[in-house]
Amino acid sequence: MGTVVISADAELGWGFHDLRDRPEERLANARDGWRWFAELCEQYQIPTTWAVVGHLLCDDCDGRHTDHPTPDGWFDHERGPDAMPRSLRFADGLVDDIVESTVDHDIGLHTFSHVLFDDPTTTREVARAEVGRALDAARARGLDPTSFVFPRNRIDHREVLASYGIESYRGTGPGIRGPGRTLRKLAVATVARSDPRIVTPYVDDAGLVNVPASLFLFSFEGAARATVAPVFGDPVLRHAKRGIDAAAAADGVFHMWLHPNNIVTDRDARRIECVFEYLDRRRNESAVRVRTMDEVAAETRAEHKATGISPD
């Protein structure tokens, strides 16, 4: 029996504060998308790894963070004419609702302020501050996170995570890159057959468990989605169902992920609801199990300890 993992990058406004052009519709809907997704998890009893930006766990701040070793200007968006509203800077109850849920969610981290770990300005000192402060904010609320998602999946400074007791992270997933990317994505969405990516979590050279991603649930959007879906159906939903079936037939992991703020329209919501409906049915058939990243990490470590070998 295989395993399905779902992880959610919970960041509200922090995922966009460094961008010149911000997706205003997603920002305006960020809290509603978070609540709706949490309610869907509750409805279907689907445990999820919520990778939360640490600043969201704070009750308040001065908007400056002058003792944080990030480059000058990193926190400018917290004040001034272009400041994020409080509703996008602090969770204000959203994380509490997840903790108090009847579902046994995994509360992980997504750094303190969404610093990109592979950026040249992200020194070891900055990485330590991002992990350490996020942990401090979480522990002040009685949480002890061990799962981690790198902002924009830009992986670096893994040794810093290990030094702070983080156990696992989401590894990079498949992507279509290079010349002809748009045409090849269209081909996969319409006529080409793309096998679902069933992954094998493993203990890496930093001593962390890498739980690689399989599918980003909003990887085919915009005009292409509007053109393809009426004729061929939703390609992401189709791929998600095939991945769940593949996990049911194999001893591996199918790891889907999203940002709650991806859920903006009724069409977006219906996609995720259809994924959950199908996953719930396959789970009830005892064909597949649903686990969080921390559960998968614990199982992977136990296997690693028993065999002494880390699969590649």
Results as ranks from 00 to 15, higher is better:
residue 157 H to E: 01
residue 152 R to D: 10
residue 139 R to F: 08
residue 149 V to H: 02
residue 138 A to C: 07
residue 157 H to V: 02
residue 134 A to N: 11
residue 143 L to I: 13
residue 129 A to Q: 13
residue 149 V to E: 01
residue 139 R to A: 13
residue 147 S to M: 08
residue 136 D to R: 15
residue 138 A to G: 12
residue 126 V to T: 04
residue 128 R to C: 13
residue 125 E to F: 06
residue 132 G to R: 05
residue 149 V to L: 10
residue 175 G to L: 02
residue 135 L to G: 12
residue 159 E to Y: 07
residue 149 V to F: 02
residue 125 E to M: 04
residue 172 T to M: 12
residue 138 A to Q: 12
residue 175 G to I: 04
residue 169 Y to D: 04
residue 175 G to C: 03
residue 136 D to F: 13
residue 176 I to A: 04
residue 149 V to W: 05
residue 142 G to R: 10
residue 143 L to H: 10
residue 154 R to T: 06
residue 127 A to H: 03
residue 150 F to S: 01
residue 133 R to H: 15
residue 145 P to H: 11
residue 123 T to A: 05
residue 130 E to M: 14
residue 172 T to I: 09
residue 147 S to A: 14
residue 173 G to N: 00
residue 174 P to I: 00
residue 146 T to D: 12
residue 144 D to G: 14
residue 156 D to G: 07
residue 152 R to T: 04
residue 159 E to H: 14
residue 159 E to L: 07
residue 167 E to S: 07
residue 160 V to Y: 08
residue 135 L to Q: 15
residue 166 I to F: 03
residue 174 P to G: 09
residue 165 G to A: 03
residue 163 S to T: 10
residue 152 R to A: 03
residue 153 N to Q: 06
residue 165 G to Y: 03
residue 137 A to D: 12
residue 171 G to D: 09
residue 147 S to I: 02
residue 153 N to K: 00
residue 144 D to R: 10
residue 163 S to D: 15
residue 136 D to L: 15
residue 153 N to I: 00
residue 128 R to E: 15
residue 141 R to S: 10
residue 153 N to M: 00
residue 143 L to V: 07
residue 145 P to Y: 05
residue 131 V to D: 08
residue 139 R to C: 13
residue 155 I to Y: 00
residue 129 A to R: 15
residue 168 S to R: 01
residue 151 P to C: 04
residue 159 E to W: 04
residue 176 I to T: 07
residue 145 P to R: 09
residue 148 F to N: 08
residue 132 G to I: 11
residue 149 V to P: 01
residue 174 P to Q: 14
residue 142 G to N: 07
residue 160 V to E: 11
residue 142 G to C: 09
residue 147 S to W: 09
residue 162 A to H: 07
residue 174 P to V: 00
residue 159 E to Q: 13
residue 143 L to K: 11
residue 138 A to I: 08
residue 140 A to C: 15
residue 172 T to C: 14
residue 148 F to D: 00
residue 153 N to T: 02
residue 134 A to W: 12
residue 126 V to P: 02
residue 129 A to V: 11
residue 141 R to M: 06
residue 126 V to W: 12
residue 135 L to N: 14
residue 142 G to Q: 05
residue 171 G to I: 00
residue 162 A to D: 12
residue 162 A to Q: 13
residue 166 I to E: 07
residue 171 G to W: 01
residue 139 R to W: 06
residue 138 A to F: 10
residue 158 R to Y: 03
residue 123 T to D: 13
residue 126 V to A: 05
residue 171 G to T: 01
residue 161 L to R: 03
residue 142 G to I: 14
